[in-house]
Design a protein around this nucleic acid. Structure first.
Lengths: 167, 167
DNA sequence: AGCTTTGTTCAATTTAGTTTGAACTCTCAG
DNA sequence: CTGAGAGTTCAAACTAAATTGAACAAAGCT
């Protein structure tokens, strides 16, 4: 079947490859794995939702990768599931509003680190107060304060960033 | 020598380790290698500049790592060299103003990717216009436009971000 | 110039992180 | 209840990236 006009979705055309490649290095900047870029990229240029199987056979990645990649993308709010009608499987569509994408990334990847950092700096401030040598204590105190300033700036900037990207 | 009171700078104390560890995962978020976090971290809590050799023996990293790490940090504007007086070697001090750090990161790591992305989207727009099927062309045109919007938002936000962090 | 110390470069190694694939669970259809 | 398809999990295999270390270059000192 289908030798001349094979409507199967098993090969990406060059333009799709181009887009997928773009997203692959897009997500590398964000420190996310290649497969996530591939998956999001393919969803992004597909006019309708794709199933896990579609992703597996068009991107030639394993079911495992696809499943994990989709999970991460869901947690970032970058894809949403749509119920495939009569079909038993789930279809996925990309979120394409920058606000949503940035928001998810900030919430899932940046905020946790900021919080974590604040905690660590707290402990650091603690240790610093117990230093004997007054010169050293003073110096370290200043540096800890600097770290706290950084964190405050970060905390202040994130919401503004989200707001600015939401247009 | 120096069994009781060894003033040599060969070991980090626990507090220094704590700070270095903090910076190590700080830089991981930014997609930079561990050694860069270690180097910057140690400089950050050292009251005076350190030489490449100081870094090598206190962090137990190779000269190669230290040299490359310092190069990256210099390119980011995160360390500056100071001339070690009578000494022949160079000493390094950290830049601690968030504005400067963020500025360097944006300039060296983010801007290039943005520019690169714009170029690729340009080519993509080109390819898209040559698509036969009008439905497909329309859909792809919309997606390319979306990408262009993202890039514009990014370009607009970066300078504001830098300004906001400069306080 | 020759010797010594500082710093750089890069191929080889090591390490960290990603992907795979087989085994598993869950759910629905018959 | 059983069988088949959809999706998940995770140890092992693989890949990409960082680190090492040895050879090299540059710069001062005698």
């Amino acid at each position: 079947m289908g030798d001349l006009l094979d409507g199967d979705q098993n090969e990406m055309d060059p333009l799709e490859r181009q887009v997928v490649a773009m997203f692959v290095d897009g997500v590398r900047v964000l420190g996310l794995p290649r497969s996530i870029g591939e998956i999001y990229g393919l969803l992004f240029i597909s006019p309708s939702g794709l199933s896990l199987d579609d992703l597996v056979c068009r991107l030639r990645i394993s079911k495992g990768s696809a499943s994990q990649g989709l999970r991460t993308l869901k947690s970032l709010g970058a894809v949403r599931e749509t119920d495939g009608g009569a079909d038993r499987r789930t279809y996925y569509e990309p979120a394409i509003e920058l606000k949503r994408l940035a928001g998810g990334f900030i919430r899932e990847q940046i905020r946790p680190h900021l919080e974590n950092g604040k905690t660590k700096i707290g402990r650091l401030a603690e240790s610093t107060r117990e230093i004997e040598d007054p010169d050293r204590r003073k110096f370290l105190g200043e540096r800890v304060e600097r770290l706290e300033t950084w964190m405050r700036s970060g905390g202040r900037v994130l919401p503004i960033l989200q707001k600015l990207l939401g247009q």
